[in-house]
Write a protein that binds this DNA or RNA. Sequence first.
DNA 1: TTATCTGCAAACATTTTGCAGCGAG
DNA 2: CTCGCTGCAAAATGTTTGCAGATAA
Lengths: 131, 131
Amino acid sequence: MQRMTRQRSAVAELLAELVDFRSAQQIHELLRERGDEVGLATVYRTLQSLADRGEVDVLRADDGEARYRRCSRQEHHHHLVCRSCGTAVELDGPGVEEWAARVGAAHGFRDVAHTMELVGTCAECAREEQD
Amino acid sequence: MQRMTRQRSAVAELLAELVDFRSAQQIHELLRERGDEVGLATVYRTLQSLADRGEVDVLRADDGEARYRRCSRQEHHHHLVCRSCGTAVELDGPGVEEWAARVGAAHGFRDVAHTMELVGTCAECAREEQD
DNA sequence: TTATCTGCAAACATTTTGCAGCGAG
DNA sequence: CTCGCTGCAAAATGTTTGCAGATAA
């Protein structure tokens, strides 16, 4: 069957700590940063097998990159990012989650996941733009 | 500005006849079948410019291919896509727009834009999974 | 005329795959 | 010891881009 290897443990552990969707390449990079060297191909293979077993969610970003997230009922959150300086605010509040679930149910959809990104100009950068 | 060429007319006409999402490559093939030879690169460029102007919707299939469809509405809206069969439902209702604007304002952000995608399993595919 | 568009081929980015060697069980 | 797993590099796939020639306005 399935063997437990250093590489697979590393991917699983990292996923357990992440809350948002991340691309395979981001995951590969995060592993490297924490000292767990895992081949990119292995990251792809591991994520794929996890996805096949339903242990991670897979979504596609607008640029075509696949994004993975460990599957859980736990609420994830979103970010509001400044398009100018990159400052990111973590958002909480169930607003979007509720809306997504309600809309999905209204159309008979099950297991509705979502991705969402807010981009704007933060107060500070808006002020600087005036000059 | 923008010139009207044989190729662009052909793409526009084909899109007008299609109802569901098609990939750029499918569109290229459909054009060839009806005798309108258009280079694949031109198909991509045309679809991209149409998407920029909001005249077509773009979605990403699970395999990473982009799918295009002429937009039935001009306003900004979102989609609920089935992760299994690809069926897409256009969503209306200002729920998310209001939420995004409110959250942005609460943090002092200006010109808040957002992207969002819902993915779920539609009723029909959920039924088939039972077997 | 001339700025834009087109087709081709080469470049790109992401993901998959073939294969020889490694290593968990 | 055995197969499944890994890393590498090569291939596949979908999309973008550089460029020389074609063409709408």
